[in-house]
C-alpha cells in the first residue's frame, strides 16, 4: 500500500506540468536569490541611505536631499566627473588603435599570432599588479624616463609623470589603453574574421588597396560592434575606478568620481553621501545608455528593422528621382551607396 502511494507520488512529481514547474522553480531559486540579495536589496538600501547622514554602524539622522546638494556643491565630488573626459579620449584612441591592429592582423602577417598574443596579454594581468608595474614604470628616472632619454630627451625637461597635475591624468589613462587595447583588438579580429572571405578575394582580384579593403569591406561589416564599443567606452569612462585606484590612489588630482566615492564610503564612513554619489552617477549612466540606444537605433536599425535614417534617405531619394529628370543621375549615385 505504502509503496503504491509512493509510486503515485513519484508519478505525480514526474508528470509533465508539475515536473516542469518544479524544475523552473528549483533551477531559478539560487541565481535569482543571489541577484536579489546582492544587487537589488543593496540598491534599494542605497537609495534609502542617500537621505541619511550615517555610518555603517551607529545612529543615523534623516537629512532629506542634503546629500544630493552636497554631491553637486562639494569641490571634490561632481568636479571629479570632469576627469572622465581624459578617459573618454583615451578610450577613443584605444578603439582606433585596436581597429588598426585588428585589420592588420586579420590578414596574413608574419608572426601575427605572437603580436596578437603580446598585445592581448596585459588584459589578463591582475589590476593590483598593473598598479605596481606602472608605479615602477613612471617613477622618476626609471623605465619611461630612460626610454625617453634614449630618444634624446633631457631628464631635466621631463615631468613627474604621476605627480605633475598637468599630465598625470594622461599617464594614468594611458595605462588603461595599455591594458584593454588588446581585448578590443581581439573582439574586432573576431568580427572581421566572420566576414565572408570571398569578398576579400574578389577585392584582391580587382586590385583594391589595403585602405579600400578596410573602408569598403571591413568597416561596414563591423560597424555595429564598433558603435557598441563606443557606447561602452562612454559609460565606462564615467565610472572609471581601477587605474587611479591602484596607481595613484587618487592623489595629486587623479581621483575619479568612484575613487572619491570609495574613499568617502569606506575611509571616512560618510555612507549617506557616498550613496547619493552612486545614485547620481547611476542616473547619469542610465540616461546616457537610453540616449545611446535611441541614437543607435536611429543610425543602425534594430536587427531586422531598417535604420530610420536609411529609410528616410531612401524616401528622400525616391522623391527627388520623381521630381526632376536632371537630378536623377546624382540621386542614383547616392542610392548605390546604400
Amino acid at each position: 500500500m505504502g509503496e503504491r502511494k509512493k509510486s503515485k507520488f513519484v508519478k505525480w512529481i514526474a508528470s509533465g506540468k508539475v515536473n516542469k514547474r518544479l524544475c523552473i522553480f528549483t533551477f531559478m531559486l539560487i541565481p535569482v536569490a543571489l541577484l536579489i540579495v546582492f544587487t537589488f536589496i543593496p540598491f534599494v538600501n542605497m537609495v534609502g541611505f542617500s537621505f541619511y547622514d550615517m555610518k555603517y554602524l551607529g545612529d543615523r539622522e534623516f537629512v532629506g536631499l542634503k546629500n544630493y546638494a552636497d554631491v553637486f556643491s562639494r569641490e571634490d565630488c561632481f568636479q571629479a566627473l570632469k576627469l572622465s573626459l581624459y578617459y573618454i579620449a583615451a578610450s577613443f584612441i584605444q578603439l582606433a588603435l585596436a581597429l588598426y591592429f585588428a585589420s592588420v592582423l586579420s590578414f596574413k602577417t608574419k608572426g601575427g599570432g605572437i603580436f596578437k598574443g603580446l598585445m592581448f596579454f596585459p588584459y589578463l594581468v591582475c589590476g593590483i599588479a598593473v598598479g605596481f608595474i606602472f608605479k615602477f614604470f613612471y617613477t622618476r628616472g626609471f623605465v619611461l624616463d630612460t626610454v625617453l632619454q634614449w630618444c634624446g630627451f633631457d631628464l631635466e625637461n621631463l615631468p613627474y609623470w604621476l605627480k605633475d597635475t598637468s599630465i598625470n591624468n594622461i599617464s594614468v589613462a594611458a595605462t588603461s589603453v595599455w591594458r584593454y587595447m588588446g581585448q578590443n583588438m581581439v573582439l574586432f579580429i573576431g568580427a572581421i574574421m566572420s566576414v565572408d572571405a570571398s569578398l576579400y578575394e574578389a577585392a584582391d582580384i580587382d586590385g583594391a588597396s589595403a585602405w579600400h579593403k578596410f573602408w569598403y569591406i571591413i568597416f561596414p561589416s563591423i560597424k555595429t560592434i564598433i558603435v557598441l564599443n563606443l557606447i561602452l567606452a562612454i559609460t565606462g569612462s564615467l565610472s572609471v575606478f581601477e587605474p587611479p585606484y591602484v596607481i595613484t590612489n587618487g592623489e595629486f588630482g587623479t581621483g575619479t568620481y568612484f575613487v572619491i566615492m570609495d574613499r568617502l564610503a569606506h575611509a571616512s564612513q560618510k555612507v549617506g553621501l557616498a550613496s547619493a554619489m552612486a545614485i547620481v552617477l547611476l542616473v547619469i549612466i542610465l540616461i546616457a545608455t537610453v540616449l545611446q540606444k535611441v541614437a543607435f537605433k536611429y543610425f543602425f536599425g534594430d536587427g531586422d528593422e531598417e535604420a530610420i535614417r536609411t529609410v528616410r534617405k531612401r524616401k528622400k531619394l525616391e522623391r527627388q528621382r520623381a521630381m526632376a529628370q536632371g537630378m536623377q543621375s546624382d540621386a542614383a549615385k547616392g542610392g548605390a551607396g546604400i
Partner: peptide, 19 residues
C-alpha cells in the same frame, strides 16, 4: 539581469558591505 549589469559593481559595494 540586464539591468543588474548596468549597475557598476564598485558603486553597489557601498551597500553590499552592509548586507
Amino acid at each position: 539581469f540586464l539591468v543588474a549589469s548596468l549597475l557598476p559593481g564598485i558603486a553597489m559595494q557601498v551597500s553590499v558591505y552592509q548586507i
